[in-house]
Write a protein that binds this DNA or RNA. Structure first.
Length: 524
DNA sequence: GCGGATCAC
DNA sequence: TATGGTGATCCGC
């Protein structure tokens, strides 16, 4: 027994234990919109009380320790860097920066569109009794999104439902309805096509668009082309409910007139014709209005010369707003300099901590500390950081290329009986094989993923000589990998809460057909 | 090629 | 009572 350790028996009078300041991982995410002015300390206390002692929590503590060790290791490496090396790093960095500088292209209008609290908004639209009440989509296990009222209590996406209920006892949980969200997404995308036929969807509720070509045709467009029916109603004298329909389509107008405004609960009309201007702000505004007309859901948007900046902008005036960065170096510099690095897509909670430890908090700090970053990070990461601090991003909006992998995984009640585990393994093999078959895909690297009852995650892969997709080969390969893991756990049983499978794709029937048809068009 | 980690949604 | 699923990428072997 270590007599130096604090005597915990003396602390039992403390009825409330304090969340450890070291447990950054468990704290409330507040880097996104809708989180202003809440009592963070109180919320974190509730999250901590609800989580502490659980297996999940214990595993998070372990991971937190590992991150701390990584930061220590980073510090040790930093201290070894000499003044001379720093001088060299500075030269390298400045060389790269001037190279990157020449890549700047300010000629494009890149737009990022993001639906506001998408799943929650759909559910509120379809069930008026949910309006003005805190609600979230998901179950006791996990929430996929919450409405803005629930966010005021700290209820967020990726939070388990039971914690959401602790934060907000009146929270209403609504089951997720993916098919419905997909259908709404399809309606939204049908509008996006009018502004950029090559738009790039990121998820059901998010997309990048390149408005550049549209802006050229817009210059010569007639007023009629830019006229849409818009319904205005003032609600609580602030948020405006806009309802619009395309002016040219009179039969549609009559159909829409029968609808009830979801916010003011009055029937349409009255409505008015709104003429949108030829500039980019009005073009994006027009698109958002049309989305709202079609779906009765609001979107936010960011307008910038590249994708990285557009993405940050769309968050700025959320919900139901838009923000534009002017396409000039000074505006970009002013915007990026003060921006916290965590706002950049790709810099998550861990990278933020690692960089903060070096004194890098805002994007301008990436530039200030460029020499240090040159020495501490890989070429790829360093390159990425330098692009960020310049405000440089991709200007080519393109659809995702072909998928590189396909996977399936399930969480279940703790399971240790080997025959149950093999059953689960077979089940997942069937599922993955079916999905591969539907898309005509094959691969040669099979990966088994397991998560133990203590939340420890492991993956075990095997590459086989042939391209495969069939259930038997997937099962036989994974069965062997699983057998080894069960054996390695001996004499203890292997107790799992999740199992998954993944196949790296090497062959796509669809691509093959496309290639053959391209070569022999007569086959069509 | 493998396994762990991180990130986004 | 109770902390997801899918796809991608990077790093260090």
């Amino acid at each position: 027994m270590n007599t130096d350790s604090p005597d915990t028996s003396k602390q039992k009078s403390d009825s409330v234990s304090k969340p450890s300041s070291l447990m950054t991982r468990m704290e409330l995410n507040d880097h996104k919109a809708g989180m202003e002015g809440l009592d963070k300390a109180k919320i974190n206390q509730i999250i901590y009380e609800a989580s502490k002692g659980s297996k999940y929590f214990e595993n998070e503590k372990k991971k937190e320790e590992q991150v701390k060790e990584r930061i220590e290791e980073q510090k040790r490496r930093m201290e070894k860097i000499t003044a001379e090396q720093l001088q060299h790093g500075l030269k390298q960095a400045d060389g790269l920066l001037s190279e990157l500088e020449s890549l700047f292209d300010l000629s494009r209008y890149i737009v990022h569109v993001d639906m506001d609290a998408f799943y929650a908004a759909v559910e509120m639209r379809d069930n008026p009794s949910l309006r003005y009440k805190p609600m979230a989509v998901g179950g006791m296990g996990m929430l996929s999104t919450s409405n803005y009222l629930a966010r005021k209590f700290g209820v967020r996406a990726a939070m388990p439902g039971f914690i959401g209920l602790k934060l907000c006892p009146n929270l209403i949980l609504v089951k997720s309805n993916q098919e419905k969200y997909s259908a709404v997404s399809k309606e939204i995308r049908a509008i996006m096509v009018d502004y950029d036929p090559n738009y790039c969807p990121l998820s059901l509720d998010e997309a990048y668009l390149d408005f550049t070509d549209h802006m050229k045709t817009r210059e010569t467009s007639s007023d009629k082309d830019r006229s849409f029916l818009v319904k205005n109603c003032s609600v609580d004298d602030e948020s405006k409910c806009m309802y619009s329909t395309q002016f040219s389509n009179s039969s549609q107008i009559e159909k829409e007139m029968l609808l009830i405004c979801p916010v003011c609960n009055k029937p349409y009309p009255p409505y008015e014709v709104k003429l949108f201007d030829k500039d980019i702000e009005d073009a994006v505004n027009e698109m958002r209005c049309r989305i709202e007309q079609r779906t009765r859901l609001t979107a936010s948007a960011g307008i910038a010369p590249n994708m990285m900046l557009a993405k940050v902008c769309s968050d700025k005036n959320k919900p139901n707003g838009q923000y534009r960065i002017q396409a000039c170096r000074d505006s970009i510099k002013e915007f990026i300099d003060d921006l916290p690095i965590r706002k950049i897509s790709g810099i998550g909670k861990i990278s933020e901590q690692m960089l903060n430890a070096l004194g890098v908090v805002k994007c301008r700090d990436l530039y200030q500390h460029r020499s240090l970053l040159y020495h501490l990070y890989s070429d790829i990461s360093f390159h990425y950081f330098m692009r960020i601090c310049l405000g440089l991003g991709s200007t080519t909006v393109e659809r995702d290329s072909e998928r590189k992998s396909m996977s399936t995984e399930r969480t279940f009640r703790d399971m240790s009986n080997p025959s149950d585990l093999y059953d689960k393994c077979l089940e997942l093999s069937e599922s993955l094989s079916k999905d591969l078959n539907e898309e005509g895909l094959k691969g040669k690297t099979v990966t088994l993923k397991i998560k133990t009852s203590t939340f420890e995650v492991k993956t075990r892969a095997q590459t086989i000589p042939d391209y495969i997709w069939d259930q038997e080969t997937i099962y036989n390969t994974c069965k062997e990998l699983l057998r080894i893991e069960i054996a390695n756990a001996q004499p203890k049983p292997l107790t799992l809460r999740l199992m998954g499978k993944n196949l790296l794709i090497c062959f796509s029937l669809r691509i093959l057909v496309a290639a053959v048809l391209a070569k022999y068009p007569s086959l069509i």
